[in-house]
């Protein structure tokens, strides 16, 4: 059985002379929340439009649900729900009517409307006009629309764009719930690493149309930690400095009251703490550099591929 719900093989695309995608290889395993990460203009939206058949596939192959997109567009769309950036809402109609209209097009059973309203938590507001909806509610209604035909796969393009923190949280919790409770595979694009790392289990990072990293989030964390540093504040930095040097730790350029140590893995942080405390030094603070993933993301998208762990 095919473990992948989305596969692209050598997908390339160009708008005129401008190459937007180059040999994109995506493998989205079933049942995951797959983060599709890249800075603005990296080709995320183009990829999503191709996946949904809005743009033609000029070169390469695209398979969704194991079917070739070229010959099975309607069959694929029948099993796929999508939300592309801002949802399409007819503002002169109520939330319920928007759902009813979409229901007629996808020919879902009538009871699905109440079900999806409940899933996204809009049952109370269903009969209000959507022009009165907040951005977060609109986005949730957009997800409800995508859920109507009960698809196995949801493709969400920047679903938290433009939302305030509570709106972002609402949508994120909904995404997690859809995956956990209903077993949906969710393909989630974002330019924000912080958003992806809060829900995705697998991810691909792309920039300038190329895959820079693809694999599990855990693996990415590990490779991130490899380049990480630990910042220490103690009651006696000079003694601590000497102690650490004696134990073969690599110290980086020193700031005023802070020691910066290069660490390779999490366990070293604990070991350093133990070493210092056992030698009678008070440790006031000990922090793994919090820029880690964000910086990693930037370094990946700026410099090019690191350890492209394809699998």
């Amino acid at each position: 059985m095919n473990p992948y719900i989305i596969e692209t093989h050598g997908l390339s695309y160009s708008f005129g002379k401008r190459q937007v995608l180059q040999n994109l290889e995506l493998r989205v395993p079933k049942g995951t929340i797959f983060g599709f990460l890249g800075p603005n203009g990296a080709g995320k939206s183009t990829t999503i439009r191709i996946l949904l058949g809005l743009l033609p596939v000029p070169k390469g192959q695209v398979l969704l649900h194991g079917l070739d997109l070229k010959d099975n567009r309607l069959d694929i769309l029948r099993q796929t729900g999508a939300l592309i950036e801002m949802p399409t809402l007819y503002r002169h109609l109520s939330g319920y009517d928007n759902l009813e209209m979409h229901r007629r097009m996808v020919r879902a059973p009538k009871h699905r409307i109440a079900e999806v309203l409940k899933i996204v938590g809009l049952a109370q507001d269903a009969h209000r006009k959507t022009s009165e909806y907040s951005l977060g509610m609109s986005q949730r209604l957009g997800i409800a629309l995508a859920l109507l035909p009960d698809p196995q796969l949801l493709i969400l393009d920047e679903p938290t764009n433009g939302l305030d923190p509570s709106g972002i949280r609402e949508v994120r919790e909904l995404i997690l719930r859809l995956n956990r409770d209903l077993g949906k595979t969710i393909f989630l694009s974002s330019h924000l690493l912080s958003e992806i790392e809060k829900c995705a289990t697998e991810l691909a990072i792309i920039d300038k149309g190329e895959t820079l990293y693809q694999g599990s989030l855990k693996q990415l964390y590990q490779s991130a930690f490899r380049t990480n540093v630990l910042r220490l504040e103690t009651n006696n930095n000079s003694v601590a400095h000497k102690l650490l040097q004696d134990h073969q730790y690599q110290l980086l350029a020193q700031e005023a009251d802070i020691l910066t140590v290069q660490v390779k893995e999490k366990e070293q942080a604990a070991a350093i703490n133990k070493l210092l405390v056992e030698n009678g030094i008070s440790v006031y603070s000990l922090q793994a550099n919090s820029q880690n993933l964000e910086e990693l993301f930037l370094s990946i998208t700026n410099k090019g591929a690191i350890t492209p762990a394809m699998h």
Binding site: L52, M86, T88
Partner: peptide, 13 residues
């Protein structure tokens, strides 16, 4: 106004 074309063309019709 609703930016609806993309939505219409991703329905299985």
């Amino acid at each position: 106004k609703a930016n609806g074309w993309k939505h219409l063309y991703t329905t299985p019709l």
